[in-house]
Computed example of a mutant assay.
Amino acid sequence: MAEERFTCRWAALSLSNIASVFLPDLLHLRESSASIKHELVSVSTTGGASRAADWLKQNKIPNAESIIVYHSWEEMLEKGDFDVVYISTPHPLHYAHVQKALQCKRNVLVEKPATMNRAQFTQLCNLAKEVNVVLMEAMWTRYLPATLYFQHKLLPRIGDVKRVYAEFSFPIVSPDLSHESRFLDKAAGAGSLLDQGVYALTWADLALNGLTSSQDKTQTEVVYAHSMPVPGVQGDVDDINTIILNKIKINESGGKQQEAVAIVTTSMTLPGSSKPAFYQRLQATKAAPAVRIEATKASVSVPFPPIRPQELYVQWYDEEHLDENGFETDEVIKMPVERGWGIWYQADVIAERVARRNGNDQGTGEVIGEEESGRVIGWMDRAREMAGIVYDAALEQV
C-alpha cells in the first residue's frame, strides 16, 4: 500500500533575504512519489500589501494569490492555519519570536543561530517540550547528503579523529557595503562568529562528536579564542576569529585525557574578491579546503563552501588501503544536492516529525538536534567571552 503523502503547510515570519532563498527552495516541484509536499500558506511582513505581493512575485512563489498576508506577526501566530512557522528575522529577535510561536503551540523552524546564547536556547527547548510541539534550528548543512554520508558512513571507518581544521570565511563585507547593513549592525547581531562561526563549529562538532553517545564520558570545550574587528567600522564588529577546541575523555577516576583538537576560523572580509554578487561569492573556488578532518586511518577534506558540501575527498593511510609502494590512496565521494540549494532537506526532516505526531498526542514536545545545536551555541558563548565579543545586554536576556 502506497504511503500517504503529507502536505506540510508553512508560514513565514519575515520576508528576509534568507527567506528568499529558503522558500523557493522549499517549494521546488517534487516527484509524485515523494511522501512530503510543502506549501506556503501565510506570511507576515511589516511592509504593505503591495510589497508582499511584489516579494512573492519576484521570488516566483507558486499560488501567491492564495497566500494570506499578515501585517502583524503576532496575529499570524495566534490565528493562522499552518503546520510549521519558519522564522528568519535577525538572530537577536529569535528568542522573542520563537517564544511567542511556542506559546501559541506552533511547530518552529528557526534560522541559525537559534538564539543569541545557550541560556535562551535552553529556555525555548524546555518550552517546546512543555507545550508539545517540535522545535528545530535551521542548520541545513547537517541534513545534506554529503554531510550525512560523512557522519554515518565515513566517520565510523576513518579511525579516531585527532585533529580538525574548520574554516568558513568569504568577503561578505565589501568597500561599497553600507555601514547600515545588517552584517555591520551589532544591534542586529552582526559579527562573523554568529553569522559564519556557527557553520564552522558545526563541522567541528560533526567530526569530534558525530559518533558520541550519551554514555561516552567525553566533553569538548573552548580553550582559546581570539578576535579581530572589521577595520573602519564602529562598534567592534568581529571579523577574523580563531577558536581552539579540545576534546577530553574523562576516565573512571575523574582524570582527563585529551583526545582531539579542533582549530576553527572565520572572516567576513577575506579571502577573495568582493565584486561578484553575494551568492556567487559564496560559491567561488578557493585554494584550500574549508574543512580537514584528520583521523588515525584517513583524512577527509570538504571544499568551499562548507555550508553546502557536495564532494568529500578522502585520503586513506591505514594498512588496508595503502598501495603496493606503501603510499596513501585517494577517494573522491560525490554526493550532489538533488535540486536547488538543498535547504529543503531540513524542511523534510521537521515535516516528517510533524506528520508523525499529527493526531497522536505524544504528551511532550521535541527539539530536533537539541544536543548538537546546544553544544555549538555554548561554544560560541565561551568564545565570545574569551575573545571579548560583546553585545548589548538586552539582546542576551532570558
Rank of each mutant, 00 (worst) to 15 (best):
residue 52 A to I: 09
residue 305 P to I: 11
residue 339 R to S: 14
residue 87 I to E: 00
residue 89 T to H: 03
residue 150 F to I: 04
residue 188 A to V: 06
residue 46 T to W: 08
residue 38 H to S: 07
residue 303 P to A: 08
residue 54 D to Q: 09
residue 383 A to I: 08
residue 247 K to M: 03
residue 338 E to D: 09
residue 220 T to S: 13
residue 155 L to P: 09
residue 334 K to F: 01
residue 367 V to C: 08
residue 300 V to M: 08
residue 132 N to F: 05
residue 49 A to H: 14
residue 128 A to V: 05
residue 28 H to Q: 12
residue 111 E to T: 07
residue 15 L to V: 04
residue 30 R to G: 04
residue 228 M to V: 13
residue 290 A to V: 15
residue 95 Y to G: 04
residue 74 E to N: 08
residue 396 E to L: 14
residue 153 K to L: 13
residue 298 A to H: 06
residue 346 Q to I: 15
residue 307 I to F: 07
residue 81 D to V: 13
residue 208 L to D: 07
residue 367 V to M: 01
residue 398 V to W: 13
residue 193 L to T: 07
residue 237 V to T: 04
residue 18 I to E: 03
residue 177 L to S: 01
residue 89 T to W: 08
residue 4 E to A: 11
residue 33 S to E: 07
residue 44 S to C: 06
residue 272 G to Y: 00
residue 188 A to R: 14
residue 371 E to N: 09
residue 25 D to W: 10
residue 48 G to H: 02
residue 185 D to G: 01
residue 349 V to P: 11
residue 142 R to A: 02
residue 336 P to D: 09
residue 126 N to S: 10
residue 191 G to P: 06
residue 212 T to V: 12
residue 204 A to L: 00
residue 62 P to Y: 05
residue 240 I to L: 12
residue 296 T to A: 08
residue 283 Q to M: 10
residue 202 T to Y: 14
residue 366 E to M: 05
residue 363 G to I: 02
residue 318 D to P: 03
residue 122 T to K: 11
residue 69 V to N: 06
residue 105 K to V: 06
residue 2 A to N: 12
residue 197 G to Y: 12
residue 266 T to S: 07
residue 309 P to R: 00
residue 107 N to G: 03
residue 340 G to V: 08
residue 75 E to W: 12
residue 236 D to Q: 12
residue 97 H to C: 15
residue 104 C to G: 11
residue 333 I to E: 02
residue 189 G to C: 00
residue 289 P to Q: 03
residue 132 N to W: 14
residue 289 P to K: 02
residue 296 T to I: 09
residue 382 R to D: 11
residue 273 S to T: 13
residue 260 A to I: 07
residue 252 E to I: 12
residue 162 K to I: 09
residue 367 V to H: 01
residue 180 E to H: 12
residue 106 R to L: 05
residue 248 I to K: 13
residue 182 R to L: 13
residue 396 E to N: 13
residue 204 A to N: 01
residue 197 G to C: 06
residue 332 V to H: 06
residue 179 H to E: 13
residue 289 P to R: 04
residue 164 V to L: 05
residue 106 R to A: 04
residue 14 S to R: 03
residue 149 Y to Q: 10
residue 395 L to F: 05
residue 112 K to A: 00
residue 72 S to L: 07
residue 6 F to C: 00
residue 339 R to T: 10
residue 112 K to F: 00
residue 196 Q to P: 00
residue 150 F to E: 06
residue 327 F to Q: 12
residue 327 F to G: 11
residue 51 R to I: 09
residue 323 D to Q: 02
residue 355 A to L: 02
residue 50 S to C: 14
residue 38 H to T: 07
residue 119 A to S: 04
residue 38 H to G: 08
residue 26 L to P: 10
residue 306 P to R: 12
residue 28 H to K: 04
residue 196 Q to Y: 04
residue 304 F to W: 15
residue 191 G to T: 06
residue 307 I to Q: 12
residue 246 N to S: 09
residue 211 L to N: 13
residue 305 P to V: 09
residue 341 W to K: 03
residue 221 E to A: 03
residue 286 K to P: 00
residue 51 R to H: 15
residue 144 L to Y: 02
